[in-house]
Each structure stands twice: as structure tokens, then as C-alpha cells.
Amino acid sequence: MAEQTVNKDIAKEENLVFKKTSVLTDKVMHYCPGCGHGTAHRLIAEVIEEMNIQSECIGITPVGCSVLMYNYLDVDMQEAAHGRAPALATAVKRLMPEKFVFTYQGDGDLAAIGTAETIHAANRGENITIFFINNGIYGMTGGQMAPTTLPNMKSSTSPYGRDVKMMGNPLKMTELVAQLPGTYYVTRQAVHTPKDVRKAKKAIRKAFENQKLERGLSLVEIVSNCNSGWKMTPLQANEWMVENMFPFYPMGDLKVDGEMVK
């Protein structure tokens, strides 16, 4: 067993400032080391714990890397067909309007096969929360090009970079959804530094609290890394994300309380 350099005088229950939330299960996540999914899961779990809504929360899991999310969050969860999470969330929320319903989707799920469901759920103003994890590729299946892949970005199906003339332009789903009158809160966050994690947590909390107001859909995009798919180390992937993803997908709120920002 490995040794730890813990200061036993300080490591006492009364000095505890941070520990893993009980809404996360003890299972080890299957995500690659350094993947943003783990941090996003933890933030959602922490917000559920802080709001004390564990028994009133229903999550809809997508198809993609986070397909096994129901193993890691100790709340009621339902698996949806690929891309259909907003449609399923609509049904759940309409049948049980007092519950907090959220979907957790990647870019291959939300922005590709699920475009219709996402846009129509947003346009109908369903009173649900969507968490959209954008890493620019299909991570689970081996790093293929997704609708969100940046121009000239290399992926396993665009090995010379995405040629916009041939393969089309990247899709900014969050900007698209923010235009619709049915959305109440649309924001884009990241989880790679402590500062961004704190901001993202506030956004997630606001997105959950908006469900009580019944004013429309809340969408939180989290720009994340995919170090395996991008063929980088976790630190390199985060640097690459800051240099390349952030100029195209700028951080910040797009729509707050039903009003466009700027």
C-alpha cells in the first residue's frame, strides 16, 4: 500500500472543507484520466446535494461516453435513445411537473442526431435543464468528426483537418438555441481551472433553480476536453482547448432570465 504524506493533526472531521458528495456513488468512473465529464458529473451532484433535491431529481442520460452516467449519480435516471433525451425529458416533466428533470448530453448526441429534439424542446419552452458537454468530436466511438468539430481540426475521420468547403461549418448549438423564445437561461462554461469550475457550478445551480420558475428551458454548455480523442495528455488537451476551442466557443452567458446578453 502506498504511503501518503497527510498531516494527521489537520485531517480531522471538524476541519473538513471538501469531500466527495454523497450524491456521487463510490463506483470508479470509466472516463479517461483528466476527462471533463467527471468534473461535470461532480458539479451536478454537488448542486443536487446543496439544493437537497436528490429524491425529486430525474436525469436523462444520453448515448456517448456518458451513457453510463446512471452508475455514478445516485438519483433516478432514465436512458434515452440516441439524441432523444430532450423528448424523453419533455414527457417526464409533463407527467411529473414537480420533479427536477435534467438531460446530460454530449455534442454527438445533442448537436448531431438530436438536433431536432433539442431545438423543438427549446422552442416549446419545456421547463427542463439541458447540460451539453461539447468536446468537438465523437469521443466514445473513436474521435470521429462531429458537427461541432472546429474548422481545420483533425479527427479520425478528418485526418487532414476539417475542410469547411467539403464538410460544412461547425454548428454553434448554444447560440442557435439562445435565439429561441422558449429558452430562459443559456450559458457556456468550462471546467478546466478552479475559477471556471466555480463559475460552472453557479450556472448549473441557476439552471436547476429556473425549473421552479417555470419560464422555459435552461441550457448549460460545458466546453470540455477529450484528451484520448485529441491524442494529447490531459494538460495539453486543456491548453489546446483554451487556444482553439474558446475563440470559437466563447465563454459566458448568452441569455439570462429570458433576455439576450449584450
Binding site: 498531516n7 489537520i10 472543507v17 471538501f18 469531500k19 468512473m29 472516463y31 483528466g34 467527471g38
Partner: peptide, 21 residues
């Protein structure tokens, strides 16, 4: 260590427990 919690915030697997005194 000042127990600032930054390491625990970025940890994707929530393996870090932080104490501060």
C-alpha cells in the same frame, strides 16, 4: 498546503478530500 480546495475542484474523479485549520 493552505487547504484552498483548488485541487479538489479540478479533480475529475473526486478523489481529493480537503481539511483546513
Amino acid at each position: 498546503c493552505t487547504g484552498c480546495v483548488n485541487c479538489a475542484l479540478v479533480c475529475p474523479d473526486a478523489v481529493i478530500t480537503v481539511y483546513r485549520k
